[in-house]
């Protein structure tokens, strides 16, 4: 059971085409992840990554299939699943503390104001914004706003953290330090997280497993890549690991060529319900159970 904390079971999503018919973004998508796992999903724009995340958040419901979290089907948005949006989506008329406290008081409706604020402050400190709690979002830099978004998401102590390209609008330095924060928080607390990204290095640094999605429409999960890098990896010396380049090349190779051609040349024995698991690493490759070997 703990092996399938989140389970995506055969979901499909269609949009009506202008002039009749419908476009299938994806269908019969299967995937599961254990508790405490950090998963990144990468693929080109328009492949339906955000739609997958929205169905996990409950903001959209799949047309077919079902998402199961902790043994219960998702029927709508829930406080068990926090979302960090691409834009920071803070409420501009509230202060930093007000934004986080709003989430806290939504989760624990009978808490006193002091208790709510104390709880919110704990998470504002966690993301390193102590001293800024009375500022409005407009007074903060882009990175600080996103930190508030992270604090707000974590403050409701969700079962899953869902992130839709949370750092894509930030400059490289800020992005790096926020990746460090997120990784530290998620490993320290055993937070289960699901994240969309375009950034291969971000995925390598953060994710335990990386889901590769082919181009849409009709996108599918091509592979699940297990991250061979050690769990105590650090962002600054990722590239020193022997496994870094095999992994990175594998991901880039997928994004550049295989994401287009994968659907036309399905590998033998490809099963939508069990997408192949690969673990690209330096010689000698470690066989991950039933996975195929990838050069």
């Amino acid at each position: 059971m703990s092996n399938k904390f989140i389970s995506i079971e055969g979901i499909a999503r269609h949009y009506p085409k202008p002039g009749g018919g419908r476009t299938t973004i994806f269908e019969d998508l299967w995937f599961s992840m254990p508790r405490g796992d950090f998963c990144c999903i990468i693929g080109h724009s328009g492949c339906g990554k955000t739609t997958v995340l929205n169905t996990l958040a409950g903001l959209e419901l799949p047309d077919e299939g079902v998402n199961v979290v902790d043994g219960r089907a998702i029927e709508g948005p829930s406080l068990d699943r926090a979302v960090i949006f691409q834009g920071h989506s803070l409420l501009p008329w509230r202060t930093v503390l007000g934004n986080v406290a709003y989430a806290v008081s939504s989760k624990w409706r009978d808490w006193s104001r002091e208790k709510v604020n104390a709880h919110a402050m704990r998470f504002i400190e966690l993301v390193g914004l102590k001293g800024n709690e009375l500022k409005k979002p407009s007074e903060l830099s882009g990175g600080m706003k996103q930190r508030v978004g992270i604090a707000r998401a974590l403050s409701i102590e969700p079962k899953i953290l869902l992130m839709d390209e949370p750092f894509s609008a930030l400059d490289a330095l800020t992005r790096g330090s926020l990746q460090d924060e997120v990784r530290r928080i998620c490993t320290d607390t055993g937070q289960t997280a699901f994240m969309i990204t375009h950034d291969v290095d971000e995925a390598i640094y953060l994710a335990d497993r990386i889901i590769l999605m082919t181009n849409g429409p009709g996108a599918m999960i091509a592979e699940v890549v297990e991250n061979p890098l050690s769990r105590d990896r650090r962002r600054i010396d990722l590239h020193k690991s022997a496994d870094y380049y095999p992994l990175r090349n594998h991901l880039i190779d997928f994004l550049v060529t295989r994401s287009k051609t994968f659907a036309d040349e399905l590998p033998a024995g490809y099963d939508k319900k069990r997408p192949p698991v690969v673990r690209p690493c330096a010689e000698p490759p470690v066989p991950p159970g039933d996975a195929r070997k990838v050069a």
Partner: peptide, 27 residues
């Protein structure tokens, strides 16, 4: 009112009345 603010309210399971007064009215 921005969709993203309404989505914040949705993911936080805010009741319709509270949403009206704490998100829509100030926005």
């Amino acid at each position: 009112v921005r969709k993203e603010w309404l989505n914040v309210a949705r993911t936080l399971e805010v009741t319709p009345l509270r949403k009206a007064f704490t998100i829509i009215l100030p926005a």
